[in-house]
Design a protein around this nucleic acid. Sequence first.
DNA 1: TGCGATTAAATCGCACACAACTAATTCGTA
DNA 2: TACGAATTAGTTGTGTGCGATTTAATCGCA
Lengths: 159, 159
Amino acid sequence: MSTVGELVGTAGAEPAQGHTLLLDDQLCFALYAASRAVTARYRPLLEELGLTYPQYLVMLVLWEQDSISVRDLGAALQLESSTLSPLLKRLEAGGLLRRERRPDDERSVAIRLTEAGARLKERARTVPVDIGAAMGLTPEQHTLTQQLLRLLTANVSQG
Amino acid sequence: MSTVGELVGTAGAEPAQGHTLLLDDQLCFALYAASRAVTARYRPLLEELGLTYPQYLVMLVLWEQDSISVRDLGAALQLESSTLSPLLKRLEAGGLLRRERRPDDERSVAIRLTEAGARLKERARTVPVDIGAAMGLTPEQHTLTQQLLRLLTANVSQG
DNA sequence: TGCGATTAAATCGCACACAACTAATTCGTA
DNA sequence: TACGAATTAGTTGTGTGCGATTTAATCGCA
């Protein structure tokens, strides 16, 4: 099974949206299992960088936009400050970033990469490539999955 | 955006599989965000049943097949005993199930629903329907997403 | 200008998740 | 049949996630 066409073609073979209580009918379970499987696949790669998976996501945001508030980081990753605060503390302890209160608004905390944090980006470059290969999806399947997941997230987030 | 055709049609508008370090390029993040968003959507529904999301998944398995070993439960849900053991202890404390060593193999523990656990199934019937509605996918999109996620999980689980 | 409402992080409590390890039991085979 | 290997749960330690609350700072409006 390798093309979208083949996937669509087999769709009729199973009852769509069973609304039953069977585990294998639940899209939620497919999602939950896939998410943990992908995270597990990342684990050994990220271990070499000294990062967990959520920490890696934080670093992705910082490599893209340095000096960001905890608030905006939370908005980007859809995580609460109760999750981010201790996570950022660990990254700071690991020497990858610094947290400083903003002078113009002392409520806000700016997250800035250290030199080590910025340097780590180079070592991380191969990670998306390796994971992409492990996922084994065609470019078409990859894009389609991403779009379906975004649609699902948008609908579920408040519809 | 509502049909698979429309999704496929727009696929060419974005670079497929960027292999970059941009957060929004990462399929893994779409997956991670979608999984948490769906779980969050379940939360209020399951709270009425006194269940967390992973507890709900365990109950789904038990409603389908009562008297199952921790091992087989872990195989069905892809969870380690280190996750299941305390979770099952909480469900037992809540009176939904019992754990008993199997007489024929004392290493194994059989999980059995109590009367209350079995009764809860009726109150849970509407959950998949409500979630299905909140997901807002067409039957075709629903099935396609499930198939893509299964393919992804299979590939990533050891390729 | 003052003061209640709002906002931003952090803290606390609880429940996963998983690696590494332990304890008990059973298996397999020499 | 004895004994080392394998299997099954459970325990421990670390790191998320999130709701509820707390603390500090800023805002907004009378």
